[in-house]
């Protein structure tokens, strides 16, 4: 039971922060299917930084490297998200197409660069960056509480950071002036414009936040799932995050709930395969759980949900 909670959270929290990024972008009116590519590119820059730092200063503690890697992942995610912002805000491209194109581009670029860098700098023909395993934290005292204590056991540092960011992001979106502008930009950009706020800037900042959050999430996945970066990072988590935010009706708290369901379904499924001592090929059947669950949840919640009114619509000053 404990391991279900521990593993579930390790999957759910990065998914949550990515979905949160998606919420920022979509609440501002920019459809963001690019989350998948953003998290991949973020993970790539972060992992590259981690490997470089590890080579340059081998004495540095794995935890410090991980923190730096997360910073670089955020930077990478933001930089790549600028392409999406440019296409959707400035060049009036179809937002859905732009998102998918960015995913394909990100996959192609990172795969190419990883091989190139490995061959060129580290002199080995490998298609992945191997990351060092980091220590996990167990909060003394609280972790002894049955069941609930598992939440505080074997935590990656990034899980704590995500919790902090989540609170800040919630505050930013719902309690600040900027958050209100952002939401207005997704529901009624003309009103926002009339109030003297620059819609393009508001949206640009929102897309950059989604890039930052996705990059962070990608790095977390790289650490927690395979302790390495390779093209296997692209297994649709970005799309699951999108499903989570749709299920959460573009609001942060319900989205968190959706992410927890995905996380626990996944870890629970793995546990089940282990417990029943099924051969490893049965793991494939467990792997489909998040995807099938996404579809089932969407079936129940899509109709009832209300997307931001101006979502996916290019802001056109002259339109009535």
């Amino acid at each position: 039971m404990n391991s279900i909670i521990i593993d579930g959270l390790v999957f759910a929290l990065p998914l949550f922060i990515m979905a949160m990024g998606g919420i920022f972008s979509e609440r501002s009116g920019v459809t963001n299917l690019a989350l998948e590519g953003l998290q991949g590119f973020g993970a790539f820059t972060g992992a590259f930084a981690a490997v470089m730092i590890g080579t340059v200063s081998p004495d540095m503690s794995p935890t410090a490297i991980m923190l730096l890697a997360l910073v670089f992942a955020v930077v990478g995610g933001v930089l790549f998200s600028l392409i999406h912002a440019l296409l959707c805000i400035k060049l009036n491209a179809d937002m859905v197409i732009s998102g998918v194109v960015i995913n394909i581009l990100s996959m192609a670029f990172t795969e190419f660069l990883t091989k190139l860098i490995n061959a060129g700098i580290f002199n080995m023909p490998s298609n992945k960056f191997v990351l060092t395993v980091t220590d996990k934290i167990t909060v003394p005292g609280i972790s002894k509480i049955p069941i609930l204590g598992a939440v505080f056991t074997n935590l990656y540092i990034f899980e704590i950071i995500i919790a902090v960011i989540a609170v800040v992001a919630w505050f930013l979106l719902y309690k600040t002036k900027y958050g209100m502008h952002l939401r207005a930009s997704g529901d009624n950009p003309h009103a926002l414009d009339a109030a003297g706020i620059n819609v393009a800037k508001t949206r640009l900042f929102a897309v950059m936040i989604s890039g930052a959050f996705s990059g962070f999430a990608g790095m977390c996945f790289a650490y927690s799932i395979s302790s390495s970066f390779s093209s296997t990072i692209y297994v649709g988590y970005g799309y699951i995050a999108i499903a989570a935010l749709i299920f959460g009706n573009w609001n942060i708290l319900p989205t968190f709930g959706a992410c927890l369901i995905f996380g626990f379904a996944r870890s629970g499924g793995y546990k089940l395969v282990q417990a029943l001592e099924m051969p490893s090929s049965y793991q494939d059947l467990v792997m489909i759980l998040p995807y099938v669950l996404t579809l089932v949840l969407l079936i129940f919640f899509s109709k009832r949900n209300r997307a931001p009114r101006a979502l996916g619509v290019i802001y056109d000053k002259g339109a009535r």
């Binding site: 299917l33 859905v96 998102g99 998918v100 297994v235 649709g236 799309y239 999108i242 499903a243 749709i246 494939d284 059947l285 792997m287 489909i288 995807y291 099938v292 996404t294 579809l295 969407l298 079936i299 899509s302 109709k303």
Partner: peptide, 19 residues
């Protein structure tokens, strides 16, 4: 159900692939 075809088809892609 008004499910975005991009999301549903990606989910089906992975489901088919694993099954």
């Amino acid at each position: 159900f008004n499910i975005n075809e991009v999301v549903s088809s990606i989910m089906l892609n992975y489901t088919f692939s694993y099954v």
